[in-house]
Amino acid sequence: MVFWVPILCYAAVLLLTAAGLARPPSPRPPWHGANLLLRYINLFPVGLMGLWAALGHIVFPARSAAAIGWATSPFQTEVGAANLGLGVAGVIAAFYPSWGFRLAVAVMTAGFLGGAAATHVVEIAETGNLAAGNAGPILYTDVLTPLLLLILLALTCRSARRAGA
């Protein structure tokens, strides 16, 4: 699961964004595609993956630790709680399209997932840990998700100001 969940989440983002762009009406504002991507990245890689990670770290800590290549630790409950907060915020951001709220979620995502990515890279460099939960697709989404959120928010900043969001 650790290998497939990030891939399936990004496949859902691409599929639903493409479906949203294929639907009328036309013409659309230039930022329409960016807003769709923001919605679905918040819903899947931030929201649902955050809830999935919370479930794993809180309910199945031994299995989660093994997937990362680490020993079980009491800190997993804290990581799980952070994932729970991030997941809930991501789901809200998907359906509450306030630019400011989405920016706050993106900043939290960048701090949390960026820190996780750095930890995984250090672990790979120092120990050679190539476990799926450390060096697999989760590492790429830990970098890609906050980066995409911040880029998309920068692209939609003007339209949000015009809309008064």
Rank of each mutant, 00 (worst) to 15 (best):
H57K: 01
E126D: 14
L144S: 00
Q76D: 02
G69L: 01
I92F: 04
L36A: 03
G90K: 07
R102K: 13
A71Y: 05
P137R: 05
A110T: 05
A165D: 15
R161H: 10
V107H: 05
P30M: 01
F95Y: 15
T72R: 11
L43I: 01
L21E: 14
F60P: 11
E126R: 13
I138H: 07
L86G: 04
Y96C: 05
F3V: 09
G114E: 05
V2R: 09
G85N: 00
N42E: 07
A34E: 15
H32Q: 14
A53P: 01
G128N: 02
R158H: 13
W31F: 12
A11Y: 04
P61I: 09
I151Q: 00
I138T: 10
T17L: 05
A66T: 12
L147A: 14
G33A: 15
G115I: 05
L86Q: 06
V143I: 12
L38G: 09
V143S: 02
A165T: 09
G47I: 08
S98C: 08
T156P: 02
G20W: 11
P30I: 03
A132L: 14
G128R: 08
P45C: 08
E123S: 10
F44T: 03
A131R: 05
L148P: 02
M49T: 14
V105G: 03
N134C: 09
